[in-house]
Deep mutational scan, measured.
Amino acid sequence: EPLWIRPDAPSRCTWQLGRPASESPHHHTAPAKSPKILPDILKKIGDTPMVRINKIGKKFGLKCELLAKCEFFNAGGSVKDRISLRMIEDAERDGTLKPGDTIIEPTSGNTGIGLALAAAVRGYRCIIVMPEKMSSEKVDVLRALGAEIVRTPTNARFDSPESHVGVAWRLKNEIPNSHILDQYRNASNPLAHYDTTADEILQQCDGKLDMLVASVGTGGTITGIARKLKEKCPGCRIIGVDPEGSILAEPEELNQTEQTTYEVEGIGYDFIPTVLDRTVVDKWFKSNDEEAFTFARMLIAQEGLLCGGSAGSTVAVAVKAAQELQEGQRCVVILPDSVRNYMTKFLSDRWMLQKGFLKEEDLTEKKPWWWHLRVQELGLSAPLTVLPTITCGHTIEILREKGFDQAPVVDEAGVILGMVTLGNMLSSLLAGKVQPSDQVGKVIYKQFKQIRLTDTLGRLSHILEMDHFALVVHEQIQYHSTGKSSQRQMVFGVVTAIDLLNFVAAQERDQK
């Protein structure tokens, strides 16, 4: 057995438009009618409502009807409940999964919650491996369901041993009777949507819809739904939504950006999952974080739909894509998950301010006199920076000697690579993860907040409520011999709460 199987392995699926269902090699399930009293909570997966979006479509000038398939009504709160249950049931049916076995899954959280929910009911041990950027709410729900959680670096490539995929496979090879159901490759993922989600949409719309818009992560949702719609409703256009920084969209030119990270969760990847059939997507749109969270908040405030950030991405694209539809036509959007997962993220004004998705003037509360002053007023001194090749031991000596707790790590040209902190280095040394002679590049981390000289002290204040420091950066445009230009970030300084307090105190003292 291989040590790991690539999540982007070539698909062996034989589905073709027009091929009889009787030739399918898979076990198919028909939607079942729910009894009045459910035998367990797993029976509350599927049969989610279709809700008309009344205000947002009109606000953006849509002539067509805009409908939302509300997947956050599933038992675990997301569309991923469907595939989690289906993968477990299919693994039980073919004898792969037996009582007492362990389920391991690399996930952005929602599939993990679905699997942990099913594992709690069915009696399996469950280990979820997820990147650090995923919300604390997801972690809390997983723990409450009895799952064990392993976190991995957000910026690790999918084929790196440190990625959530790599760590999951390492655990599988170490733990007896453990299984990775593997949402990236498992046919049960798109089949769950082909058999149930798509049929529900067709039934709820009486077979009449002209466009379907869905955000894409593993691709199982859009693949399964689109294949069924292509068979039953061939005139329906399928629109895929991919965040900026991901590479799922086609044509490839759409993916060209210097951005590699994004805040919206559960969609987009740096590889093409095996289950994603991009041939059934008629057109791709890219979405960005700001519009995703703005539209998610709009869905909550104006439509009462308590959905997550990827739902915002989907609707932001839908109001663009559906401009081509006329009166009497219908566009369906998939709202994948609930706001429950993001209470401390985009639902929080403070978080939105820190990330730059909300401006101070958007909030009406009274601010102190210094709130709208610029960061450049602080008069920061030149920063202490270190090269990635310097040793951890030497870096600790320098920081202690100069009285700093942290320093930016830059390359020879001064471009920011990340940050090192005294606390992080000492804990890594004590844990045996690094040696004093190791290069400081081994303990770089990139989960820090950046701020510009033109940003306000109010925004800085919000950042420092949650973080010990902020890195002050400025952009530099560099022209190359080819005539092309590129933008790079340079370090201007490091600012802490002490710097802000000293500035405010000094100004008030001078005024007296």
Rank of each mutant, 00 (worst) to 15 (best):
W351N: 02
F295I: 08
S486I: 12
S313R: 02
M419C: 13
E263S: 04
L399D: 02
L464G: 09
A249M: 11
I300E: 06
V472S: 10
I477Q: 02
G393L: 12
P383R: 07
G268D: 02
I398C: 02
A249L: 06
D349W: 02
L453P: 13
T456C: 10
T389N: 13
L460V: 14
D242A: 04
I498W: 10
D499V: 02
H474R: 04
P243F: 05
F404R: 04
D242W: 02
E291W: 07
R278K: 10
L464S: 08
D242S: 10
V264Q: 07
L305D: 02
T260V: 10
L422V: 14
D362V: 14
E412N: 08
Q450N: 15
D405Y: 08
P436N: 05
K345P: 06
A431H: 02
I238Y: 08
T344G: 11
F448C: 13
A311G: 02
V332G: 04
E253K: 09
S381Y: 08
A322S: 15
D282C: 11
F293C: 06
Q302L: 09
G312P: 13
M298C: 11
Q439S: 08
I498Y: 09
L426N: 09
G483K: 15
T456Q: 02
T314Y: 08
F503G: 02
D349N: 12
D411E: 07
L429C: 11
K359W: 08
R374T: 11
S486C: 12
I451C: 02
P388D: 02
I300N: 02
L457W: 02
V472Q: 13
L399A: 14
Q256N: 13
A296Q: 04
Q323N: 05
D349R: 02
P251A: 05
E475V: 14
A505G: 11
G240H: 02
L460G: 02
D411K: 14
S486R: 13
G483L: 09
H462G: 12
A407C: 12
A413G: 12
A292V: 07
T456G: 12
T261P: 13
T482M: 11
I390D: 04
C392F: 12
L422W: 08
R297W: 06
K402N: 11
L373R: 08
W351L: 02
L417S: 12
D467Y: 02
Q259F: 15
P273T: 09
L453S: 05
H474N: 04
I477G: 02
Y342W: 06
G356I: 11
R452H: 14
R400L: 10
L363H: 15
P388M: 02
E265N: 04
G441V: 07
G423E: 11
V280N: 06
M343Y: 02
Y269R: 02
G414A: 02
L358A: 07
L417W: 09
K433P: 02
F271W: 06
E397G: 10
T391G: 05
F357W: 08
K283A: 09
V473K: 02
E290V: 12
A506T: 13
F285A: 14
A301D: 10
G245V: 02
L325C: 11
C392W: 10
P251S: 10
I451S: 02
K366I: 15
L500R: 02
Q447M: 10
L500D: 02
L399G: 02
F448L: 11
R452V: 10
S485T: 02
N288F: 09
D411W: 10
D337V: 02
P368M: 07
E263G: 06
R297D: 05
G493C: 14
L500T: 14
L464Q: 15
R452K: 02
V386Q: 05
Q439R: 09
F503V: 13
N255I: 02
G240S: 02
Q511V: 08
A316M: 05
E401F: 11
K359S: 11
I238L: 04
A292K: 02
L457G: 05
G432D: 14
F469M: 02
K446R: 13
L384Y: 07
T421W: 06
D411H: 08
A413D: 02
I444R: 11
G308A: 06
R509H: 14
N255W: 07
Y479Q: 09
I267A: 07
I398L: 12
F295D: 02
M419F: 13
T279Y: 12
E252T: 13
P368C: 07
H468V: 06
A407L: 14
L426R: 10
A470E: 02
L305Y: 12
P383N: 02
